[in-house]
Design a protein around this nucleic acid. Sequence first.
DNA 1: CAGTTAATAACAAATGCTTTCGTAATTTTC
DNA 2: GAAAATTACGAAAGCATTTGTTATTAACTG
Lengths: 354, 354
Amino acid sequence: MGDQQVERRRRSTKTNPAQNNATVNDVAKLAGVSTATVSRTLNSPDVVRPEVRERVTMAIQKLGYIPNDSARALRQNQTRLIGVVVPTLSYALYADFFASLQKTLAEKGFFALLTTSEYDLQSEAEQAAKLIRQGAQGLVLVGRLRDKQLSRLLATSGVPYVTAYVFDPTDTIGSIGFDNARAVSEVVNYLVSLGHRKIAMLTGLTTNRNDRALARVQGYVTAMNAHQLPSDEWIAQAPYTIIGGRTALQEIFDKSLQPTAIVCGSDMLAIGALQECKARNIQVPQDISIVGFDDLEIAAHIEPPLTTVSVPSVSMGKAVGERIVEICLGLTIPSTPAFETSLIVRKTTAAPRD
Amino acid sequence: MGDQQVERRRRSTKTNPAQNNATVNDVAKLAGVSTATVSRTLNSPDVVRPEVRERVTMAIQKLGYIPNDSARALRQNQTRLIGVVVPTLSYALYADFFASLQKTLAEKGFFALLTTSEYDLQSEAEQAAKLIRQGAQGLVLVGRLRDKQLSRLLATSGVPYVTAYVFDPTDTIGSIGFDNARAVSEVVNYLVSLGHRKIAMLTGLTTNRNDRALARVQGYVTAMNAHQLPSDEWIAQAPYTIIGGRTALQEIFDKSLQPTAIVCGSDMLAIGALQECKARNIQVPQDISIVGFDDLEIAAHIEPPLTTVSVPSVSMGKAVGERIVEICLGLTIPSTPAFETSLIVRKTTAAPRD
DNA sequence: CAGTTAATAACAAATGCTTTCGTAATTTTC
DNA sequence: GAAAATTACGAAAGCATTTGTTATTAACTG
């Protein structure tokens, strides 16, 4: 049997030319130990004699050895990659959420693979599928409403996931968020307590089945009903942008409705509404009260400072990060209660005239 | 020789309990072919007979087989992971940049591993090191000023990288950005042409060696010198926040300086300056002109709309994505010229009084 | 129809690391 | 001082792929 070709093909497939190349084998050879010992010096230094450890460390230094994580991942079945799909990064809320999440993951030795869905559930499903294929060990998603395909994939692949920004009392392990509906209801209650009766709502697009937006509308409708106030006509939709806020408010006015207060599904909508009022010479809060949602940095700094609902993006990001890591590591998992939002009253709300 | 223990330890190390498990082997068995054929149906379908291909595809379907990317990465030495370190995500500029970059990478089949440095070069170095260890095939960094350690690591590891937001004419391959200094010089020139002589500058923190901020200050100083105007005293630093802008402007006023125009290193600083002026009953632009930098969405929508410098974050993100992929794939690489910024004149600039 | 060629698929090696098992060396125990 | 226990290290298997080489079959040629 000719086995003389064993050594023939060495280092044949080198996609990346200038890549670092030292392997655990090179280190072992240089340090005069076995690869097992090199691995141990790296992963459980305490079980290798200081003297040997030193030698190995020197060799690593000298060769500029960097462990190949693909190999480690393959062997340990552990990529330490968490896939994250957020609607967008252009909205500060999600950017902050992700920043917090990423920081938490980093502390645990995990990495975030970030993609955006642009508020499209089908795109979300595609992104998630790609992330799983790429080796994501766990997934973080925003919202609980999702594409059928994705539901199936999550089930069949068995990849654990955590959802953020909505709270599902039936899943206190995998959902971390707050009660969007209740938060908006409280806003409505506050406005009613101020004396408002004609309250409009500006919401983000619900056509693409955005469950956060949907829940906020729901909260508005519920509260209005509870106060026996009309709501159906008083709702306008637009994208979560300043322009969106302006056009949505125009739409309300175009129906000849005369709201004394406007509840917005996001601060950007509220800022747009504020501008539209300014353009029409409507005084805020004297003529119209406006309430935002999210409490972005800018909200406190516009004129007049915006009354809004503060959302715990940062603590949610942290909690989500901890949770998904716990699940991936198979640790025992305490259930998480809903996070709380809080109404931040600034200068865009007041009692209606007379 | 006893080799009866070969089969003893099977499937022993299973870190992740509920993970998908079908391997290429299972698929091969079910389809009645070899693993090689399964691999080929996936990667070069044209070389396998349609009939067989069909059988394999069915088996893949049936088992819900998802290729293990760690194994593929190991074998091909190709992780398709690009590490990205940006200063922060809380600033919309970088969020938009990343969004564009990520989208471009996704189109090429690559993924972004995102971390933030919080404007700290040492942290940047640490993040980059982690990313390389995690298997990043290429790196995207912001700015060209970096920690000594990181420079060394980049050199020894041979991991290719691209820098963004600054342009280095000596490296038209690895640097993609614009001329920060010139952009600010043009702002100064514009203000001088309007008749301004007392021009202050509000800059981001330069103490942590932020080369974008540094270059912007440099551009201000150069232009002021060219016009034989004083500049040294007229500079104040603060973090890139609204509050930062307010305190920085206060600092200027506290020196009893009476600027008629203020150049800001970012829109957030400009918005802060604007607020400070409002608080002091200073009219903008009648009493003081203010110019921002970045052209965030909000800039066009505050009152009065902000004159600012538009930065090509999105096209830069796209170019960076294409470039780093080209490099990783070893493609031929055209050099990139500097991107252009443009001054967007809105309502916060005017000629000074008399 | 024998012989060459082309097309497919199987075999088996190789990727870099971790980890089990075994053993040699050292320490502890009675 | 011999037996037992402990410690430190090496040999080699195994993780799930890809891929160069070889074997098989089918097609084609003169």
